[in-house]
């Protein structure tokens, strides 16, 4: 129940993110986008949020996820700070947990 204080333990490149139990990420054709589903609620994700969360598999660390995204979007500049910023938001929302 009690997790780390949100003010500390910010996301680092070596953390392995996974979805918190009860949170399901999936593609919804009717909404033409990715959504995050949780008890009695749903967040519609924009394209970049969807692309980042799609790489979370509970195995790969943040550094690997950044590498996959940079390979998939070669026209984009370095993505590390954007990815970390978004994952930090996702952590504070309690969508994901880190190990």
């Amino acid at each position: 129940m009690v997790t780390a204080n949100p003010a500390t333990n910010a996301v680092t490149t070596t953390n392995i993110p996974r979805f918190r139990r009860g949170f399901r990420f999936q593609w919804e054709p009717a909404q033409n986008g990715h959504v995050l589903l949780y008890p009695e609620g749903m967040v519609k994700l924009n394209e970049s949020a969807g692309a980042i969360l799609a790489e979370i598999d509970g195995q790969r660390c943040v550094r690997d996820i950044v590498a996959v995204l940079e390979a998939a979007f070669p026209q984009a500049d370095a993505l590390e700070s954007d990815v970390i910023e978004f994952l930090e938001h996702a952590r504070q929302q309690h969508w994901i947990e880190l190990s």
Partner: peptide, 8 residues
């Protein structure tokens, strides 16, 4: 099919 994602 009509688009519902949450079911109670």
């Amino acid at each position: 099919e009509t688009g519902a994602a949450q079911l109670g």
